[in-house]
Nucleic acid binder design. Structure first.
Lengths: 238, 238, 238, 238
DNA sequence: CATGAATGAGCGTTCATTCAT
DNA sequence: CATGAATGAACGCTCATTCAT
């Protein structure tokens, strides 16, 4: 059974959108910051940006979005002034976008290579669940930071700027085609693919929580429970 | 098969905890507000409190925790001064506690009566899922407000004051005994009850989202998908 | 050598002034309080007033004028609402006046009986120093409360309402005639009586501080040092 | 008779303490102000700080500690926003510390050079009294500001942060060694040096008050009265 | 005699951002 | 590339006081 090629994370698309947004807003960066897009950024500037993004991730994960202020990030990054942040990123929103891009990109790189080569729908589903839960388990700060941003970042009118989490959406987008393909090939039973994809995504998130709560579940145990659940919930009634 | 009596929502316990906390802190209500607990509150005061809590819920749901300021609540409640809020609730934290108590109480009243009388584990599970998803679907602001508080309210040291959502915890607490009873009676297969409870709870939340997203799923459809999934995921392998 | 009759503390005069002020302002006590002066106050009201004044004194002494709020006084007095304070005293300023009156009256009663019957200027001076330092040592809260009020209470224009402390003024007023009489009778040398009176008053206050600081000075030691100093500083050069 | 070298004002030590405190707390200057200690402050920043400190001194002297708010200081300094104050000083407490340091430093510079070269205990005592009373008479605002801070500034627990005035302590510390040296050399009689030092300090303060009160005492008169009093109170009985 | 409800003004502090070099 | 200086707006909270019974 052929699995659609579009199964990969769509982080690349998201990244391009973000870059375009950044480029668009460069015109109003009146305070005098770096004027170019990512491609023509100097080495030093890139390093500073990475340093600040890393500090932002840790702050978000530990203190939450509401407490993630320029002052706290400054402190954690060990830089001299909050001015450096607005210098490199313009506004807070753009910094948050940069965090999202960074995290999404790293997640994509880690996950995409794990899911190649599966031919059955169940195999693809299982591999993807495995890859996602493992990455999440190993990058809790990134997961938490992403969630904080997506659930709290709003535009001037008060609307959430990232309706659902970026990788969440990407992951759901990645899961749904697999589910649809499985239904078409007769491997899976009939169900609402959108809801099932959401549920599996939520189950993965729940597993992360479950692993941290006593009595702790080990990563392999967790993966086994999840893949079993996915198999039972999707397979054709015998 | 007898389902444990403790299946009911434990909101009562949570409420008592909150009340105790409120009572304990009465001593530091230095700004001069009503000093009594809920039991000895006057009619006018109760009405004002309800009015403010309602405004807080709407504000939380619409604008998020970060934008839920006394000023916004004041405006939405149509009261004359933010002082009225701190007069009746002391601090913002205590207002948030009051919101949580109010929402939890209303949810409990609505749900508990729906799940009585079920004798089989699957029946109890199905009834509870049905009741919870329906209540959530009909009280989206309350659900959203609760989530905003639980995910963002922190104490002075930066620790989340409500680790998991109150009804979330209550719901998970309510689901797990059913699952355990089902396993003991042989009605359910073996799985980690903690993770399964979390997953089902997450699936319910996902369903709320799914209903709001086009192409929309109707409430009955949603309930059917969820109960089917629960049945398949838990039943003994044939 | 006859000592002027006016040596006694003039607290009576101060009290009358305060009472007049209270009486004058009764007309604008719009919130509905007791309408009469001290003479026609009921027993219960007097008790309440005393209770509140006592709490105010303790609060002033412990926390200072800036932290002496109606809320704190309420707490310490164990009453139900700050409303009781404004009910009995009208404004904060009038409460402070009541504190001053109470403390001044008690001081006068304690001191005046100790200094009767002295015939020489040095005897009168010594007796008064003794009486004052002893009273202060035994009523530290009252001393402190009085100082807090006199140094910090201001009227609407920002002017201190009690230029020097009431008993301070009273004490200085009481000391100066003794000094003047001593100079006229030739018992004392020539000096500025105003400055000397102030200095002796300050020395008494300093002694209070000195007794509390290690290595502690006992009360009798303290009195001896002070009276010796007064004798040496005032006596006619041999 | 050799007077101990340590007679000089210990303002230097106090200044270092304050600087250390400032340096320690730099970490929590979260609002984004100048982060450096006094030594590495820019010219513009130093000027602004001086301007604000001067306005704070005048406000403290005129309106008292309780009325010394950022808004009042802003107005008197003629600056655009209260934010400028917290920008340069962080918190109100640190501004108060800066006032204390500034005043103490200026007092030290003015006084210390006046008391050098005295060889007898009485000479040193007289010179110091003269210098102190003159400085105080010429800097009434500074004296008053210092007193307001020391009597009213409290930490979070309500404890006075500057138990005795900085220069008061320094002055008392400066007086006591002179007194002790005079006793050891036989120049002075026996008395409690701690109490005598306190008393002389108090007498100096009293003199400031006396000069402002009609019938006014002139500065030279005042100095003469004080030095006479000190001589008579300390000299060996003939 | 006592209380409940309400209130406007003001507090110090923190926010992200902009204007200068 | 980096920094220093400045800023208006908003925050939660506390103040003494007044209007009702």
């Amino acid at each position: 059974m052929p699995v659609p090629a579009s199964v990969g994370l769509n982080v690349t698309r998201l990244r391009n959108e973000l870059l375009m947004r950044v480029t668009e807003t460069d015109g109003r960066n009146e305070a005098g910051g770096p004027s170019a897009g990512a491609s023509e950024r100097s080495l030093a500037a890139s390093a500073r940006r990475a340093q600040i993004v890393a500090a932002a991730i840790e702050t978000l994960a530990e203190s939450g979005h509401g407490q993630t202020t320029f002052a706290r990030i400054k402190e954690r990054a060990g830089i001299s002034s909050t001015r450096l942040i607005s210098y490199h990123f313009g506004t807070k929103g753009e910094l948050m976008d940069a965090v999202l891009e960074e995290v999404g990109l790293r997640a994509q790189q880690a996950i995409s290579q794990r899911v190649a080569g599966e031919t059955s729908a169940l195999g693809a589903l299982t591999a993807r669940i495995e890859a996602q839960v493992e990455w999440a388990a190993r990058n809790p700060s990134s997961v938490r930071a992403m969630a904080e941003i997506c659930r709290n970042e709003r535009d001037a009118e008060g609307v959430l700027r990232h309706g659902t989490e970026v990788t969440a959406r990407a992951n759901v987008d990645a899961l749904e085609p697999i589910l649809r393909a499985g239904q078409e090939s007769g491997e899976f039973r009939q169900f609402d693919t959108g809801l099932m994809a959401l549920t599996l995504k939520s189950a993965i998130d729940a597993a992360i929580v479950r692993m941290a709560r006593p009595p702790r579940l080990s990563l392999p145990q967790c993966v086994r429970e999840l893949t079993t659940l996915a198999r039972l919930a999707t397979r054709r009634e015998p």
